[in-house]
């Protein structure tokens, strides 16, 4: 019989592994819009972690900030600037001039 404490710790471990995967994909993804979506997934995992660590205040402030405002602001920025991360070819072309 699995106790409630083991179940809580199991959920904590699973959520943190999900956040690890999301962080890896967000950092390595070339398309910035997809990177923002992976970053929001990581934020969702962190919200669950805050809840499991018994910090409802932090969960309340983290949901609007990291799941709502951060992605929206970064999407505004991506829309106004460029979408693809690191096009090396054009850099080398410019360097030759």
């Amino acid at each position: 019989m699995i106790g409630l404490n083991t179940l809580t710790y199991l959920f904590m471990a699973l959520t943190s592994v999900i956040s690890l995967i999301a962080t890896y994909l967000a950092v390595l993804e070339k398309d910035l819009i997809r990177a923002v979506v992976y970053s929001a997934l990581q934020s969702t995992a962190y919200t669950i972690l805050f809840y499991l660590l018994m910090a409802p205040d932090i969960a309340l402030v983290y949901v609007p900030v990291a799941v709502g405002l951060y992605p929206a602001v970064i999407l505004f920025l991506v829309k106004k600037t460029e979408r693809i991360d690191g096009e090396l070819g054009s850099v080398e072309g410019d360097g030759g001039k």
Binding site: T23, A26, S39, I74, G86
Partner: peptide
């Protein structure tokens, strides 16, 4: 990562 936007995303994480 070369792009400043990607640096901001990584900084928030």
């Amino acid at each position: 990562r070369p792009t400043l936007i990607k640096k901001i995303i990584a900084l928030t994480i």
